[in-house]
Design a binder for these strands. Structure first.
Length: 293
DNA sequence: GGCATTTGACCGCA
DNA sequence: TGCGGTCAAATGCC
């Protein structure tokens, strides 16, 4: 058991090191590519990523316990399922639950869709009435959480005034395979706040509510859905075709494909990331550049 | 019986 | 102190 914990710790450290190195490469790449001037949220974001990895490594190195758990330190016994039987040991008296951390919306991706289906298997673990919201917010985690350790979760809330439209917020990445072919193959987090400094958007980015565009959504959503997205992007511009064209130009522009925008949540003021399917970009230069670092 | 959903309670944070 | 996120027992469904 101790050997297993040490082995897991080693792998975790290696994973964190890899992530940190990748973030550093990305930082170098973006600085070259965007000629970052230092006033950009991209830099803050990267710094935060790097600090997260470094901090995690520091905590791991400074801790001899190697235990990463929600179980509070006061817990007398850590319950670990028996590997052979799959059964949990006899329950111990719980003094208190683990510490709950509020999710950081900066790690989120937002999608507005007419369906909650996205190709992955989700299990609902909670529902909550949200203040000033007509509909409750539902909480889902990946069904394969226990099998693949998948940490992906999503929040789904029905939009007011939009018949059968759902505001879906994703947290974390899937480490498990999708249950069908509807999953997103390639996603890129966009950082539109950066564009304020580059004058790439004629309209205020703060009015943008969602930018998720992918083949699946385009296929399943009717024209109303698409116009909703376009309307959000164009901020009251009636010429949807021109706004779509503008977005096409934006997406093809040399932004290093990382942009951020302020997202006005329907229920609470949060900042989130939109994402765009790589197929839409139809531009392999970005990936080739990224991988050639 | 196994799995998913419901729902009240718990917990941290602003 | 209220709100949002999560847990976990109870319940339902197949």
């Amino acid at each position: 058991m101790l050997l297993d914990m040490e082995s897991n710790k080693e792998r975790l450290i290696q994973t964190l090191i890899t992530g940190r190195d990748s973030a550093q490469k990305l930082q170098t790449f973006l600085q070259r590519r965007l000629n970052v001037d230092g006033s950009v949220p991209v830099k803050d974001l990267l710094t935060e990523i790097l600090e997260s990895f470094s901090g995690g490594l520091s905590m791991l190195n400074s801790s001899d316990s190697g235990e990463i758990s929600r179980v509070p330190a006061s817990h007398p016994v850590i319950q670990i399922p028996d590997v052979c039987t799959g059964k949990k040991p006899a329950p111990v008296v719980k003094e208190r639950r683990g510490c709950y951390k509020r999710r950081r919306t900066i790690d989120s991706r937002v999608k507005i869709s007419s369906t909650m289906e996205d190709g992955y298997a989700w299990r609902k673990y909670g529902q909550k009435e949200i203040l000033n919201s007509k509909f409750p917010r539902c909480y889902f985690r990946c069904t394969h959480k226990h099998f693949h350790g998948c940490k992906a979760v999503k929040q789904v809330q029905k939009l007011e005034g939009e018949s059968n439209m759902f505001h879906i917020t994703y947290f974390g990445q899937h480490t498990c395979p999708p249950s069908d072919s509807l999953s997103h193959k390639h996603e890129v987090v966009l950082d539109f706040e950066d564009t304020k400094n580059h004058n790439l958007f004629p309209k205020s980015p703060s009015t943008i509510t969602n930018i998720h565009i992918d083949p699946y959504v385009k296929q399943e959503a009717d024209s109303k859905t698409q116009s909703t997205v376009s309307d959000n992007i164009s901020s009251g511009n009636d010429d949807q075709s021109s706004s779509a064209l503008r977005w096409n130009e934006v997406l093809r522009a040399d932004l290093g494909s990382f942009m951020r925008f302020d997202h006005e949540d329907s229920s609470a003021s949060t900042m989130s990331h939109g994402y765009v399917d790589m197929d839409l970009l139809n531009n392999g230069d970005f990936l080739s550049d990224l991988y050639s670092i």
